[in-house]
Lab assay of single mutants.
Amino acid sequence: DEVTIHLGDKTIRVDGLDKELLEILKELARRGADEEELRKEIERWER
């Protein structure tokens, strides 16, 4: 499953996201997290 996250004018595509992680990323994005913060969160989950 590829998920596309839209952040204002930026788009991040991620393969096979965990549903819980997806919810966390959506919440972070709502709070104004930037792409770098979201990537760090994704990397934390992948470990």
Rank of each mutant, 00 (worst) to 15 (best):
T4E: 14
R30L: 12
E20T: 09
E43N: 07
L17Q: 06
I24F: 07
T4Y: 08
K26M: 14
R47C: 15
I42R: 03
E46M: 06
L7I: 14
L28G: 01
K10M: 14
V14K: 05
L25S: 00
L25M: 01
I42Q: 03
L17K: 09
I5L: 03
L7H: 06
A33F: 09
R44H: 14
V3C: 12
E46H: 05
T11P: 08
G8V: 10
G8C: 11
I5Q: 04
R44Q: 14
E46G: 09
E23S: 08
R31H: 11
E46A: 05
K10T: 15
L28Q: 02
T11C: 03
K10E: 07
L21E: 01
I42K: 05
K19I: 10
G32Q: 01
G16P: 06
A33Q: 02
V14W: 04
G16E: 09
R44A: 11
L21V: 03
L38E: 00
D1R: 07
G32I: 01
I12E: 02
H6S: 14
R47K: 15
A29Q: 13
E35H: 07
E23W: 03
E46I: 07
E46C: 06
V14G: 08
R30D: 07
E20I: 11
V3L: 12
D15K: 15
E20K: 14
E43L: 05
R30M: 11
E46R: 03
I5W: 00
R39M: 13
V3P: 12
E46D: 09
L22C: 05
V3N: 14
L38P: 00
E37P: 00
E41T: 11
V3E: 13
E35Y: 15
E36T: 11
G32D: 02
E20G: 13
R44K: 13
G8I: 05
E2S: 14
R13P: 08
R47L: 13
L17N: 05
R47G: 15
E2P: 11
R31V: 09
L25H: 00
L38R: 01
E2W: 08
I12G: 03
K26R: 13
G16R: 08
E35N: 07
V3G: 10
A29E: 08
L21C: 02
L17F: 08
L7V: 14
R31W: 08
A33G: 07
I24N: 05
K10P: 06
E43R: 02
E20F: 07
D34V: 06
V14H: 05
D18V: 11
R39A: 06
L28E: 00
D18L: 06
E23Q: 12
R13A: 10
L21P: 00
E46F: 08
E20L: 13
A33L: 07
L25T: 00
A29H: 09
K40H: 05
E2N: 11
A29I: 15
L17S: 06
